[in-house]
Design a protein around this nucleic acid. Structure first.
Lengths: 237, 237
DNA sequence: TGTACATCAGTGAACGCGCGTTCACTGATGTAC
DNA sequence: TGTACATCAGTGAACGCGCGTTCACTGATGTAC
């Protein structure tokens, strides 16, 4: 509790961060000693910096985000992050990896709220993908952007991204098996579906529909495109 | 001729730029006085800076591009661009607008190499879209990215982008009319097609296929997705 | 054709800025005995 | 339980850097007469 008050005093912009931190504390780990004294040590600076980075990236964009501002937000000196992260890139990758995990959970949850292999389950999964992009556009961009350095951190992102793709593959396999389609077709179905939702997400968050079709409803678009494609695959080919 | 030599001397990195400049001179305007003396005035600095910016953006990415480096490349002082562009953003927008014009020409050309209204014409158009992205990934990103400032320059990009979308709309209308589909469906066909090619383009240039499906051939993917969707639309609904 | 002059398109030096990262340091914490 | 000490996780000052933009300026060009 005292910790939170300290943060507020140190940086007036940190309210969102505090809320996020509280949320992730609730989910992740219940504090071992709840009545901890505020002081020299932060407690969980790595977590705090990651949350601050996430919020900042969402505000300023993946490139506009700066280490310095992140420190200001967390109320620590500019040297502090280097106890927890190799460099700026390392911190950014942490945010990206978290994004993939959130995307995986969101798509899986929506998918599983419909019968396995149903068109509805695939549509719902796609809509969840687009909604995630809509709610965290900058993090979404970051996740799928090409990263500069190739290291373990990057590998970690790849793995998290891979498990995300598994959610789609499972759904497609169920769909395919129910209709007696060859297993070799899995990617021929999964990749087009991915392009539909990824394209919708990108065009939506970059506000490109506004120019040529401002009335576009992303949920409708995903439904029309997905149903159209799946009926083309299942019915004709 | 002397002009080109001067540029080479001033900035050793400028070879690509010189090539591009020669190309666009050939296309755009034949020089009024071919044997012009090299000297204090550049001749067509606006054109030169735009080409330099294009090349730099492709090398460093839309955010890594800097005014200073652009000037170095064109062999002028850092103050010179401000005779031709309001600011950095203005120059970047010029590059984006050119990109849309190039994309419009590329997609229209490929579309018109097949019978109007045919599935092949729509597939070819989509493949041209993706190939453009592949050949100019950073400019492609820039074109569809959200821009910060809203002004006449931004309006110009919107208009060029709009004429790009017309290429697709015309193709879809021809397809639709040939099959007796209602005109109200135009957007319901065009937008899904757009998401397919835009999604493919984004995932391709961000190297996201590499992680989960490294064998992906973008031309095949566009064909499978487009044909699947169109047969779903035309055959079943 | 020659000249005076306005305008145009450059120069180069300087500005303030915020950045990422490093450094030697120091206070707080955990642990062995 | 108390103490000595190693380790951890911060501080804050400083670094060099490249950036976008502005300024007063000047050489080159075009034009009116």
């Amino acid at each position: 509790m005292l910790l939170i008050v300290t943060l507020r005093v140190n940086s007036p912009n940190s309210e969102l961060f505090v809320v996020k931190r509280l949320m992730s504390e609730n989910i992740a780990q219940p504090p071992a000693e709840p009545a901890k004294k505020a002081g020299y040590h932060h407690g969980d600076l790595k977590e705090a910096l990651t949350c601050a980075a996430e919020a900042l990236i969402e505000t300023k964009g993946p490139e506009g985000f700066s280490m310095a501002e992140c420190c200001r937000m967390a109320g620590v000196s500019t040297a502090a992050p280097y106890r927890h992260f190799e460099d700026r890139e390392d911190l950014v990758k942490q945010v990206a990896a978290r994004g993939f995990e959130a995307l995986r959970v969101a798509t899986k949850t929506r998918r599983d709220s419909h019968p396995p292999g149903s068109v509805d389950s695939i549509v719902a999964m796609g809509q969840a993908y687009v909604r995630f992009a809509e709610s965290s556009p900058a993090v979404f961009r970051l996740m799928f952007a090409k990263h500069k350095r190739m290291d373990e951190g990057h590998q970690a992102i790849h793995e998290t991204g891979g498990t995300c793709f598994m959610v789609l593959l499972e759904a497609v396999d169920a769909f395919r098996e129910q209709r007696g389609l060859s297993a070799t077709k899995t990617l021929d179905i999964a990749l087009p579906l991915w392009t539909i939702v990824h394209g919708t997400a990108c065009l939506l968050i970059d506000r490109d529909f506004d120019v040529v079709a401002p009335e576009t409803d992303p949920d409708d678009l995903v439904r029309i495109a997905t149903e159209g494609f799946l009926s083309g695959i299942a019915g004709v080919n």
